[in-house]
Nucleic acid binder design. Structure first.
Length: 234
DNA sequence: TACCAGGTCCTCG
DNA sequence: CGAGGACATGGT
């Protein structure tokens, strides 16, 4: 019997366990850590770190991003005002390990100026209001596309938004024959899942876990923990 | 050595 | 509108 998106989610959760997304740096800590079973960021600092991480991880492995975040943190620059005041070239140096550092430095600076100018320096004001409106404002910023915006809304804002990434596309295509287009694929999942922040939070993280280890470009179906119920389409 | 990684934007045809 | 390229580091 083929899985529904929700039964598929439950299998992934029981195999991999809670993923603790989005990782953030503990007070006094050196690098981000995963925090299982917390589905909304507690502090404004965590919210900002998540937004910054969402930009830094664009088409880049999280390992490289962790280093960049650790450097920012060590420089006292995991902070809206600090980044707003920092020269772009210095910021680029701090985030060097995350790749595309010139672009990403510009994107980060654009993001913090927006938060300063339009949100009085408070990210919470962005997430406190209408979600669709917040999403539009984010998408209007240079270097923030649908996945980055939705990651911010879900993991920094605690909004019930389904995040689509490359793994989601690959897995949903193979398993469900789901559409490839961002908005259509997002709706595919949102229409078929319970209205639960936990499910949206964990599901995306679990798809990344499956995509990294098993449902890769060259899939490892023999070892896949959820091969039963998989259509195995292109 | 190539290829890939928790994308986005720009340019062509 | 869709394909193709630029952006860049670090791991396998």
């Amino acid at each position: 019997m083929p899985d529904t998106p929700y039964s598929f989610y439950r299998k992934l959760l029981s195999f991999f366990g809670p993923q603790g997304w989005w990782p953030t740096t503990p007070a006094g800590g050196a690098a981000p850590v995963y925090r299982p079973l917390r589905y909304s960021p507690a502090t404004p600092e965590e919210r900002f770190e998540i937004c910054a991480g969402a930009i830094l991880t664009q088409n880049t492995s999280w390992k490289n991003v962790e280093k960049a975040i650790a450097c920012l943190n060590a420089a006292g620059a995991l902070d809206i005002r600090a980044i707003r005041r920092m020269p772009r070239a210095r910021l680029a140096g701090l985030i060097r390990s995350s790749g595309y550092y010139n672009q990403k430095a510009a994107r980060l600076k654009n993001f913090v100026s927006y938060v300063h100018r339009a949100r009085g320096g408070r990210l919470s004001s962005l997430f406190a209001g209408n979600t669709a409106a917040a999403r539009s404002e984010l998408l209007a910023l240079p270097g923030i596309g649908p996945e980055t915006a939705d990651s911010m809304l879900l993991y920094a804002g605690g909004k019930r938004v389904f995040v689509v990434d490359a793994y989601t596309r690959r897995i949903a295509g193979r398993r469900f024959g789901a559409p490839d287009d961002y908005a259509e694929l997002q709706r595919f999942f949102e229409e078929r899942l319970p209205r639960s922040l936990k499910v949206f939070n964990e599901f995306h993280a679990l798809l990344v876990a499956l995509g990294k280890e098993y449902c890769r470009t060259k899939p490892r179906c023999e070892q896949c923990p959820v091969r039963r119920g998989c259509g195995g389409r292109a």
